[in-house]
């Protein structure tokens, strides 16, 4: 069970003067149950890439497989695919439309043709999973704060019980506290339900603490596809792409250059703390 990209190309506005390639020869394999970070500068093709995963965009060349089936085959059931590969877009404002949050979350499962009882059960579960307080269930989604709107949007996709969940910049426009809350929520979801999560972001800081694997996109190509530690070793290349390694990595590098015996592969705050304490001989 996995998503496979086989030599996928995508060109925007083909046959016009504005034509430009958004994806160039992308080959990827995304196995089940992983927590993956997809990183790239604005315009690197990451949003285009994720829209291929649930069949919203058809590749100009190459094939996308989900569970060994070509998702763009004429007979393939796209609605079913979209229930199994959930995609939460960047702006919750683009999908919230109902008079209250509960009804809005019901929209997804209702489209799957489930009986009303199941629909409501799923919506309730999903809203509980994203940690929305009961008081907000029957409020208009337009009256909520940015972070709460995002939770409702995530619940709206979660209620379809996807096997893979893709989140496009779920932290954009949130304050530091809201950011951490959402990221912790996603991480918890991954741990509890074991679904595959693809977290799209342009900030290394966001993903470094959580993900098992990082895919870096640059100008429509996959630049790196490895574990965080491995990716962060290429600091200079990352900077050339307009990205940066987490601040911890820079800090550790400078300590190492100053003569401390620390492991520069430490990517999270916790690891860094332990390394520094070790180097100082305190533990």
């Amino acid at each position: 069970m996995s998503i496979i990209f086989d030599h996928v190309n995508y060109i925007y506005d083909e046959d016009t003067a504005m034509a430009h390639a958004a994806l160039i020869d992308v080959n990827l394999k995304i196995p089940d149950g992983k927590f993956i970070g997809l990183i790239g500068h604005t315009g690197s093709g990451k949003s285009t890439l994720i829209q291929h995963m649930n069949g919203l965009i058809k590749p100009s060349g190459g094939t996308v497989y989900f569970n060994n089936e070509d998702i763009n085959a004429p007979t393939y059931n796209k609605k079913n695919l979209r229930a199994r590969v959930g995609l939460v877009f960047q702006y919750p404002e683009h999908q919230l439309f109902e008079t209250d949050c509960f009804k809005d979350v019901c929209f997804g499962p209702k489209n799957l043709g489930l009986p009303q009882k199941d629909v409501e059960l799923r919506a309730y579960e999903a809203l509980k999973q994203v940690g929305l307080e009961d008081d907000f269930f029957y409020q208009s989604p337009f009256d909520l704060s940015g972070g709460q709107k995002r939770r409702v949007a995530i619940a709206g996709v979660l209620a379809m019980k996807p096997e893979v969940m893709i989140l496009d910049e779920p932290t954009a426009g949130l304050d530091p506290k809201g950011r951490e809350d959402i990221l912790n929520l996603i991480s918890d979801l991954h741990k509890k339900t074991g679904i595959t999560i693809i977290l799209v972001s342009h900030s290394m800081e966001d993903v470094a603490d959580y993900v098992e694997r990082i895919i870096v996109m640059n100008k429509g190509r996959v630049a790196f596809d490895a574990e965080p530690k491995e990716v962060f070793r290429h600091v200079t290349e990352l900077e050339e792409m307009g990205l940066a390694a987490p601040q911890v990595t820079y800090c550790m590098k400078e300590l190492w250059e100053a003569g401390f015996d620390v492991d520069t592969d430490a990517t999270t705050l916790e690891e860094a703390k332990n390394e520094i304490l070790k180097a100082l001989g305190r533990c």
Binding site: R82, F89, G156
Partner: peptide, 9 residues
């Protein structure tokens, strides 16, 4: 696209 991702037709 956001609504199609939620199964809208």
């Amino acid at each position: 696209k956001a609504q199609m991702a939620r199964g809208a037709d």
